[in-house]
Write a protein that binds this DNA or RNA. Structure first.
Length: 585
RNA sequence: GCGCCUGUAGUUUAAUGGAUAGAACAUCGGGUUGCGGACCCGAAACUUAGAGGUUCGAUUCCUCUCAGGCGCACCA
């Protein structure tokens, strides 16, 4: 509809107009400021020496435009156009049009909101990417949850989506870990039961960094172990593999709990044998130069530090691996877009990788996007694995589920449920709360870690949306035996004739869902979906509180249709966010 | 030191250069056993860190200052 309006304005003014939803619905469904914009253009024109005077008064111009539209015959989807100070043109959609949209929701069901804008295009999304041998921390929740939402969004927009979990399973950090294992009492048995845990691995890593403070020379020892790993030393390799296996088991447990499934998990080690080609290629293209004993690609022209392909000891860097990774993805999928959902502390690194990939002709700059999410910080400072200052995700999820359970037990809505049902719902609700808390923030801003707010079950929260959905289901279940006849919503409207403001408000919100999807995908901002769904749920609950749905007389059928559509949109939106929608809660 | 990012009610935050800066939490006051109270309505609370500038119009763009965060070749 937005594009229709844009065309309409273009036809009558020759301008590409900005069409927006007025913040206040009193100002209509759509609004444009084209008439206001011409004022600055006029001064631009005269600066160019064009004397031709345009009518300088935005109000007059706006009226002129509106008269043109009217005399050409108003499109049937518009019921009213208005010009207001200082020169806005506001449009109201007709009830027939809105009713049609409602029908669309009920007809398209789970497919409502699906777009085709990505048809034929492929996107690779790099997300989650936890580090092996460290517990899944709360810091990686952001990448996982936002990345998955972006994945779902692009998929919904018609893109071919490929998710890759770029596990941190290679690098000097393993040298450190293996050094520490070899120099402690920890044993990795050749076979049989493994008594190593991920917490122990984390402790070893912390121990190493404590030791470094007194004995800086062990850093060199650690680097040697990484060299040995790259050289294929059997024992070192075996220890590494044990750490990887152990970590993957733990990660999969977390992913199961979160309901996340990522298409691929190649990890950094996958590119071990693919880096040589990049290095040769960079040398051949005269991009790789030696500097201070290391092999680098310089980015002087961008005013950023060089990327290091090979350290002076001959070992590779993650810069090298990420370039090999781009090359691999390009060959395998030839994607139109690469999205990296990684923390903002790695901005510079991705600038270097993208610049390097462009120089090597692996892609064009506009194909690479780093969705840099802000960090989760303690009020007193940064989280740090090295210092052992982390929050483990599983403790957070456990607590969330515990709190949801408590509410279910207390609430009357939980009555008549089996213990097993209650457990399932508590899981959906608790995890929904944590995910939503993360997703509702703009990705780029930092989040101050707030133990209480993460579990919020009221107000602007995941459970509020889930609750509203369950409410719509509850109403609809009561009339299961009656067939909901919503084939002709505009006919229902005719019988009803007038809508109250709550009904109209819902109607004027629901149809916007596909626009929100597009905007959220374009801006890599799942939080826009959160905003929209919360607004919709608030409107529905207000409507629900004031008006009877069942037993609503002439209005019953229409209100049922509204209820079904609201539930459907909530469900579609939440599922894009990766949040479950239990029928009851 | 240099570069990038952020600064909005007590707290967490929203707002493609537009209309009275919108919510949630917390606080205070209300809502006939109700189609699910994990809900709804209302009140109080923001000179958008500060100072300039561009613009008909600035939370948004530019400059400076202040505060915080992140990063700055052999970690990832």
């Amino acid at each position: 509809m937005k594009s229709e309006l844009q065309k309409l304005i273009y036809k009558n003014t020759g301008k590409k107009a900005i069409i927006e939803h007025p913040v206040d619905m009193e100002h209509g469904d759509y609004s444009t400021n084209v008439a206001l914009k011409t004022r600055s253009e006029k001064s631009f024109d005269s600066a160019q020496g064009k004397q031709e005077a345009r009518s300088g008064n935005p109000m007059e111009l706006a009226n002129e435009i509106v008269n043109k539209i009217r005399s050409a015959g108003m499109p049937e989807y518009i019921s009213k156009i208005e010009v207001v100070q200082p020169g806005f043109i506001n449009f109201w959609l007709s009830q027939e049009y809105l009713a049609n949209q409602l029908e669309g929701v009920l007809k398209d069901k789970d497919g409502f909101g699906k777009l085709t804008i990505g048809k034929g295009k492929t996107v690779v999304i790099d997300y989650s990417s936890p580090n092996i041998a460290k517990p899944f921390g709360i810091g990686h929740l952001r990448s996982t949850v936002i990345g998955q939402a972006i994945y779902n969004l692009y998929n919904f927009c018609g893109w071919k989506t490929i998710g890759d979990n770029h596990l941190g399973d290679w690098g000097t950090q393993f040298g450190k870990l293996i050094y520490q294992i070899q120099n402690s009492k920890v044993k990795i048995p050749l076979q049989g039961k493994q008594n190593l845990t991920i917490e122990k691995l984390e402790k070893l890593y912390v121990d190493f960094h404590k030791k470094v403070e007194k004995h800086p020379e062990i850093e060199d020892e650690a680097r040697k172990y990484f060299q040995m790993l790259e050289a294929g030393d059997k024992e070192v390799r075996r220890i590494w593999q044990a750490c990887v296996d152990l970590s993957l088991k733990e990660f999969n447990r977390i992913y199961d709990l979160l309901g996340i499934k990522i298409d691929y998990a190649f990890g950094e080690s996958f590119y071990e044998d693919k880096m040589a080609e990049v290095i040769v290629d960079a040398k051949r293209k005269k991009l790789a130069v030696e500097s201070q004993g290391a092999l680098i690609i310089s980015f002087d022209e961008l005013n950023i530090p060089p990327g290091i392909l090979l350290k002076s000891d001959g070992a590779t860097m993650y810069f090298t691996r990420d370039l090999a990774c781009v090359l691999y993805r390009q060959r395998r999928w030839n994607p139109d877009l690469y999205i990296y959902e990684v923390g903002s502390d790695q901005k510079l690194h991705f600038q270097q990788v993208f610049a390097g990939a462009v120089k090597l002709h692996y892609g064009k700059m506009n194909q690479f996007v780093h969705v840099a999410h802000g960090l989760i910080r303690f009020p007193e400072g940064k989280m740090s694995t090295r210092a052992g200052k982390t929050v483990h995700l599983d403790t957070v999820l456990d607590e969330a589920i515990k709190r949801a359970t408590k509410i279910i037990k207390k609430s009357s809505t939980g009555r008549g449920m089996t213990v097993k049902q209650q457990e399932q719902i508590a899981k959906a609700v608790g995890i929904g709360a944590v995910k939503y808390f993360d997703l509702k923030h703009q990705p780029e801003t930092d989040i101050i870690y707030d133990w209480e707010k993460m579990f919020q079950l009221e107000g602007d929260s995941g459970p509020y949306l889930q609750y509203t959905f369950a409410r719509t289901r509850s109403v609809l279940n009561k009339i299961k035996n009656k067939i909901l006849n919503i084939k002709n919503t505009d006919q229902i409207l005719k019988i009803k004739n007038t809508l109250n403001s709550e009904e109209l408000g819902l109607l004027r919100t629901i149809y916007r869902f596909p626009e929100v999807i597009e905007l959220a995908a374009e801006n890599y901002s799942p939080n826009l979906i959160c905003n929209f769904l919360f607004d919709l749920a608030q409107k529905y609950n207000n409507f629900y509180n004031i008006h009877r749905i069942l037993g609503g007389g002439d209005s019953e059928e229409f209100r049922l249709a509204l209820t079904a559509a609201t539930g459907q949109v909530l469900k579609n939106g939440l599922s894009l966010l990766g949040i479950d929608t239990p029928e009851r809660m």
